[in-house]
Amino acid sequence: MKVMLHLEKVRKTYGKGKHAVKALGHISLSIPAGQVVGLVGPNGAGKTTLLKVITGLTHPDEGRVELFDESRTELNRRHIGFLPENPQFFKNISARELILFSLRLCKGDCSSQNVESLLNLVGLLDAADRPIRHYSKGMKQRVGLAQALAHQPHFLILDEPMSGLDPGGRELIKSILREYCTPKRAILFSSHDLGDVEDLCSRVIWVEGGQIRLDAPILEIQKQSLFEVHWQKQGRARSKEVADEAELWSLLDEIRVSGGQILRIQRALVKRINHLLDIGRAP
């Protein structure tokens, strides 16, 4: 299977001396084709720096970055699609012009049919000729995704693609990404929303303090804890984690019979990740 990305002992520090901040500390990882990888972690964990190092926007102090089994070059950057966090565009350009420009730079299919289908895909066909400066945040995010996808890259890198989107916009982007990932392509995206990660990813990488703290298939994480149920009984809030669906149904029955009121049921991914991290931290 083709390796889309290979990082070896990548280190990055911002500043010097007393004010030096370690953004990445000897990170090594590989992403083969066919995977959708979610990069998660708290603010300042090093997610954006990692994505910038991969795309070449930031230079690592040490380490090697390989794309498609070779060193990163201008040529193999043609097969990357990138959406930065809160993307900004030329003020007066329209979505149609931006996509066409993106296709020309990456030597993609510049036919008007292709441009129209991309605009249609992200739901911007009606606003295609309006200057992007008049777009809402969600529309900007979608046009950003369209320019990243335009040339059908093998490897898609997205920095917080769902940030600031309404539920409809999130679902649209999720469905585009689900459809986009084929066995010959890979997606790496950072997110704060573990629900999105759970919905889309086949693998989760948890970054904290510039280090990879956890790198595991999502199924493995989910297997250990699936749901967290919150309910109220006699004015007291309670919660419990359950490991599988059968246990969940029996707990729900139990709550109902005892007169409790179910407040919410949520996936317990954060807790599970924290639990796994605690295991990792333990001496």
Binding site: K52, T55, G56, L57, E74, L75, R77, R78, I80, F82, P84, N86, P87, Q88, F89, F90, S102, L105, C106, K107, G144, Q147, I157
Partner: peptide
Amino acid sequence: EGRMMQLLLVKPLS
């Protein structure tokens, strides 16, 4: 123009 540059400089453009 930082964010615009980010969009452009990940493309095959030095």
